[in-house]
Amino acid sequence: MYENRMKVEFQSKSQNESFARVAVAAFVSQLDPTIEEITDVKTAVSEAVTNSIIHGYENKDGIVTIEAVIKDNEVTITVSDEGRGIDNIEQAMQPLYTSRPDLERSGMGFTVMETFMDSLEVYSEAGKGTKVVMKKTFKSIC
């Protein structure tokens, strides 16, 4: 069984969203993904990180943590923050729902994550933060 892991933390600044995408893409590249697979992962990570910055920390200073674990040909990516949390996860995961209509957000973040990854789990507690766990299995094996 092949296993590898990485963890990265960065400030909750929108400029770091592209760093997060590239860091996870570089880590996942050891699985020799297709262009489509790597694009799916980057898009899902981008959405999760953006949610942490915009909704979790409401553009205030905080730390976003990404952990990724590869086991054989599956990656589990966890994006977490210690921000405001989600009051109603079920409602937040509905397509087109946004808690920040003032920012003209599309409300499609969780839908995008679900579309591009094989599984999505969201854990959150008001005032304590949110953890998004996404998994994707790759066709190739390292």
Rank of each mutant, 00 (worst) to 15 (best):
K13Y: 09
E104T: 14
R21K: 12
Q91K: 14
E17W: 02
E3F: 13
L96V: 14
N51D: 13
A26L: 13
V41S: 04
T137V: 11
N51K: 13
E125K: 09
F138M: 09
V75W: 01
V24K: 13
N51H: 12
F19V: 09
A23K: 09
E90K: 10
V49S: 06
Y2C: 00
D40P: 13
E58F: 07
G127P: 04
E37G: 03
I89E: 11
M117H: 03
L31Y: 08
I70N: 06
A44H: 08
G83C: 10
V64I: 04
K42A: 15
K131H: 07
D61R: 05
T76K: 02
F19I: 11
R21I: 06
V8F: 13
L120V: 12
Y2S: 01
D32L: 11
I86T: 09
V133R: 00
D72V: 02
L103G: 07
V75K: 09
N51W: 15
G107R: 05
M6E: 01
M108E: 10
G129Q: 04
T39L: 00
N59P: 02
V49Q: 03
E58Q: 09
C142M: 12
D61T: 05
V112G: 05
A20S: 12
M93A: 03
P33K: 14
G83E: 12
L120K: 02
S99K: 07
V8M: 09
Y123V: 09
M113A: 04
N16Y: 08
D87F: 07
E37Y: 02
H55Y: 12
T76L: 03
A48Y: 02
K7Y: 01
G107K: 02
S52F: 07
N73Q: 07
E9V: 14
L31I: 08
S12A: 14
I141K: 14
R84L: 13
V75F: 02
I70Q: 13
G85E: 00
Q91S: 06
N59W: 14
T98Y: 07
M6A: 01
M113P: 05
E36R: 06
R5W: 14
E17F: 05
V122I: 14
F110C: 01
M117R: 06
N16R: 03
D32R: 15
V133N: 07
N4R: 15
E114F: 01
A25S: 08
V122L: 13
V45F: 01
K71F: 08
A26E: 15
V49T: 06
E125N: 12
S18T: 11
I86E: 10
T78S: 15
A23D: 01
I38V: 10
E36P: 00
D32V: 05
R84A: 03
H55N: 12
T78V: 13
E82L: 13
G62E: 02
D40R: 12
K42L: 10
E104W: 15
